[in-house]
Amino acid sequence: MSHIHIDIAGLSFGYEEGIPILKDLSVSFHEKDAVGLIGANGAGKSTFLKLLVGLELAGTGSIRVEEIPVEKKTLAKVREKIGYVFQDSDTQLFMTTVREDVAFAPRNYGLPEDEVNRRVQRALELVHIPHLADKAVCRLSGGEKKLASIATILSMTPDILLLDEPSVALDPGNRRNLIHILNEFDHLKVIASHDLDFIWDTCNRVLLMDRGQIIADGTPDGILRDEALLTTHALELPLSLSRIRPG
């Protein structure tokens, strides 16, 4: 078995007392996992991702990232290992130009300027947007913003990538490009999405969540083809699979 990167045990969480969002979750993610987190609205996918990176702190239970417990005092260490891509790229990008934004994290980690420049160039190349380096963030299209958001995270060279609804508002070309980029990232990644076709194209493991619980954990083939399971939990077969369904 590969080295465990994230280990979650008995995790429960709620924003208000008595109204749990996540209920007693226990799951482990491994080094090469590409995990698709699927579920209807309000299933707890985004909250789950936020807990992994310490944007919310667990009520009960524990989260360990490479043996480091996610607690207030360990947040800096944990966040060096995890890159989190927000659903809304406008939230992710706050500097004036793409280059400045991508350089933000490496500079914060005190890297020398040569190394910062090298990382910025590499991150921009990975998402195929080196030509946008000096473009003002406010002038980017939705797809370009998403790619720039991912570049801001790749420049941190994270061991783990978390993405919240990455395919939202992308046109088919940019969507295909993003799938390609994510498939090239060969570390652990967790993708929360309603876009089951996107999950089908990028993940080798799927977690189905409903009302704060993990209902199913398996391969994309096992879960995304199970129409009865998906329908019970307010989802539908991916379009690409429903088209080739016999009959």
Binding site: L55, Q92, M156
Partner: peptide, 9 residues
């Protein structure tokens, strides 16, 4: 939060 996730203090 986005800034903090990228090492801002």
């Amino acid at each position: 939060q986005s800034m903090c996730l990228r090492g801002f203090r």
